[in-house]
Amino acid sequence: MTRTVISVRELTKRFGDFTAVDRISFDVREGEIFGFLGANGAGKTTAMRMLCGLSYPTSGSGTVDGFDIMRDGEKIKRRIGYMSQRFSLYDDLTVRENIRLYGGIYGLGRRQTQERMEELLRRLDFMSERDTLVGSLPLGWKQKLAFSVATLHRPGVVFLDEPTGGVDPLTRRQFWEMIYEAAAGGTTVFVTTHYMDEAEYCSRVSIMADGRIRALDTPAALKREFGAATMDDVFRKIAREAKRI
């Protein structure tokens, strides 16, 4: 029996009258790639922010790597990696400076940072770009680098918020290979995406609408349940019933 890494019960976030996340419950097991799907405004990002210790839940409870999201936000932050679509790295620092910064932030020693940096640059074939400003890298490269930096300190869980938004199909493919590699190494991956082909790669998928989780299972089981040929059809069937789109 594998360990449960993320466990959420009746998690709710309200902003005034608006209930962004409405009593969601789920568990994520160690080494899983957990796809967190939903239309824009369904509440994915809000839910994810609560798990990462960026936002306090209004009610309900949850743990990440055994720590309470209400009380131990700062302890959780030591154990997770996080990468979002909007940015992630400092554009006005070079590749190496960014890696060194995050190595320092997560308390890796100088030598350890140096070793992991070299390994990372080799793996990404980035050696020649190591002194390039991150801001002048193409988006796809940036995202691959951001993922590598988010996992530099070998976190137990990594949260990816639409990591492949705006990235070309070839780079997306490479990005998912990196995700698989991380998962194979025991890292739990919690990922939101709008690409349904990516949902097919996940071990399990949850689909949110109107702040609630409407479906949660393996891609194959979901397709059976909804009588759909692809995840795309499953998603459409659920999203069509949603009020908040």
Partner: peptide
């Protein structure tokens, strides 16, 4: 504005 503070907020700094 750039959003980089989010990355700091989610770190143990």
């Amino acid at each position: 504005e750039k959003g980089t503070i989010e990355q700091i907020n989610v770190s143990p700094v």
